[in-house]
Design a binder for these strands. Structure first.
Lengths: 150, 150
DNA sequence: ATAACTGCAAACGTTTTGCCAGCAT
DNA sequence: ATGCTGGCAAAACGTTTGCAGTTAT
């Protein structure tokens, strides 16, 4: 993962266009994002970063997430709920959220590939992206209250 | 579509549980929603309703959308962009948004049905809902600036 | 010197809430 | 009389922005 940072410092074509520097704040934000499994919100990230840089501001977190996502290193994912979420993994994949505990997991496969052509054919749209969220009850929560869940 | 309203007045089991009345405002909101093709935002709906009930408030629109969606008559759809969108059609379907003109169309078929079992099997989640948004360029916009789009 | 960056605080847009009055049962 | 409802205004919430000072090149 450090590779990303090194690439950035060494004139990554995408970032060098934007004359972007790898500040301490940005580095930590990226590290948090890589460490985090659960598609954190900006505020989640802020709280994590604060452990390391106590005076960091939420504005800085948002600004950096914006810059990082404009480069494609980070992906903003709009899932249900009122907050934007962020993700380092940029390949297409869906998400599944537990309606009990709110955890969000990645789908282990892409359910859409076979559909894009079909969509293009039937709607006339030229498809450029997709975003999917399933909701359900995760195995753990099914265990906890199997009666409800079933 | 009026059927819905009639049902509501005649003690629809869902709504009668909630002791919900069909007020003029709620009726108009529902009508706007049924007339609207394009997954309107609360504000879109507010502006439409105001044509008929000039003193209606935005709060009322939100309150009613909340009530209607809790009964399942209306579905909140969280798509990209900062605003919630609403939809009368409650059967599962995906959406596709044009990145040029922002219009949103329904997908003419459900690309997920075959996936749910697979997801359940592979993630252990019990799937209860799904939400999908594709983005692309609609046929109209492809025509307008085919060079860009292609 | 320049340009990117930060923290802070204010502003912004969307949604929710509290209050009191009105209306249907 | 009760309780769902509406209008209004304020609050809440997530996010963005302006500013002045700091840091890296």
């Amino acid at each position: 993962m450090v590779i990303i940072i090194v690439i950035l410092n060494q004139e990554d074509p995408v970032l060098s266009n934007k004359k972007t520097r790898m500040s301490r704040q940005r580095k930590v934000i990226l590290e948090v994002l890589e460490r985090c499994e659960n598609h954190p919100t900006a505020d989640d990230i802020y709280l994590q970063v604060r452990k390391e840089i106590p005076r960091v501001s939420l504005g800085t977190v948002y600004r950096n997430l914006e810059i990082l996502s404009s480069t494609g290193i980070v992906k903003r994912v709009q899932l249900s709920g009122s907050q934007m979420r962020f993700d380092t993994c940029t390949d297409d994949h869906g998400h599944i959220r537990c309606i009990e505990c709110q955890r969000i997991d990645d789908l282990p496969f892409d359910p859409f590939n076979p559909c894009e052509n079909e969509i293009q054919k039937r709607t006339g749209y030229k498809v450029v992206d997709r975003c999917v969220e399933f909701t359900g009850i995760c195995p753990h929560c099914q265990g906890q209250n199997g009666e409800d869940a079933a």
